[in-house]
């Protein structure tokens, strides 16, 4: 078998007695849109936190292009082309919108300590390029109206897209979106769907957690279903929809 872009093997995370993620194995091939679904508390966010290095796995393996990355800190994963957004917004409210996106480009920037301290011209040049690129990305995700805004002055829906722009600024190969449509109205959700499609067209592998089933079924080619931290099912949207366990879990939860 070819090495997958990302491979989870018997991945588990417990918080004291709570088994938030239990023995999950899953392969993510490059170039597809994946979705992770499941009832509230199923462990979706915990799974993202494990993969992005925010949490350390209790057991199991995470392999990125065959390399074991379980337990690496988030910045090391960012260096390896993995990025994410957050379910509960993680925007730097003390920065402008544009600066938030520029933070995403941190790794691309010239940031050697002495040149920075002495304000050598190379630093300014690389920063100006990042600024232009950040502005492009803001327009790309539909935040073009907020180029001059303070992040703290932006509405919720725009902030959710701003997080996507920030993640894209890191030029990731694989992008994890945790409930990007939560709190958005129907129009905003439709716009978001178009944005995610365009991201996928750029060759970035997208993995999203979403409760909006219409969005999931429209976008995802492959779905992982979690329930009580365990893998309940996986497969194409049609397979997952027809799976009796999935139906039971969702009806049971409703």
């Amino acid at each position: 078998m070819m090495t997958a872009l990302l491979e989870l093997e018997h991945l588990s995370k417990s918080f004291g007695g709570v088994h938030a993620v239990q023995d999950v194995s899953y392969r993510i091939e490059a170039g597809a849109v994946h979705a992770v679904i499941g009832p509230n508390g199923a462990g979706k966010t915990t799974l993202f936190n494990l993969i992005s290095g925010v949490y350390t796995p209790s057991r199991g393996h995470i392999r990125l292009r065959g390399e074991e990355v379980g337990g690496l800190p988030p910045n090391r994963l960012a260096e390896r082309g993995l990025n994410r957004t957050f379910q509960n917004l993680q925007i730097c409210m003390n920065l402008t919108a544009l600066e938030n996106v520029m933070v995403g480009a941190h790794l691309q920037l010239d940031r050697r300590f002495l040149p920075v301290l002495l304000r050598l011209p190379a630093i300014g040049r690389s920063d100006r390029r990042a600024r232009e690129r950040a502005a492009e990305l803001m327009s790309f995700v539909g935040c073009g109206a907020y180029l001059a805004a303070e992040a703290a002055a932006m509405p919720y829906g725009a902030l959710k897209r701003l997080e996507i722009a920030r993640a894209l600024a890191a030029e990731p190969q694989i992008l994890f979106l945790d409930e990007p449509a939560a709190g958005l109205n129907a129009t905003e959700t439709a716009e978001l769907e178009a944005v995610i499609r365009r991201i996928a067209e750029r060759g970035i592998t997208v993995v999203l957690v979403e409760h909006d089933m219409k969005l999931v079924m429209n976008l995802a080619e492959h779905i992982l279903v979690l329930d009580y931290g365990r893998k309940l099912a996986e497969g194409s949207p049609a397979e997952v929809r027809a799976n009796p366990d999935v139906i039971a879990a969702y009806l049971g939860a409703a």
Partner: peptide, 13 residues
């Protein structure tokens, strides 16, 4: 950024 959101800064690299 670390001041604003440490986890966001770390994920940004």
């Amino acid at each position: 950024a670390v001041h604003g959101s440490e986890v966001a800064a770390r994920v940004a690299g």
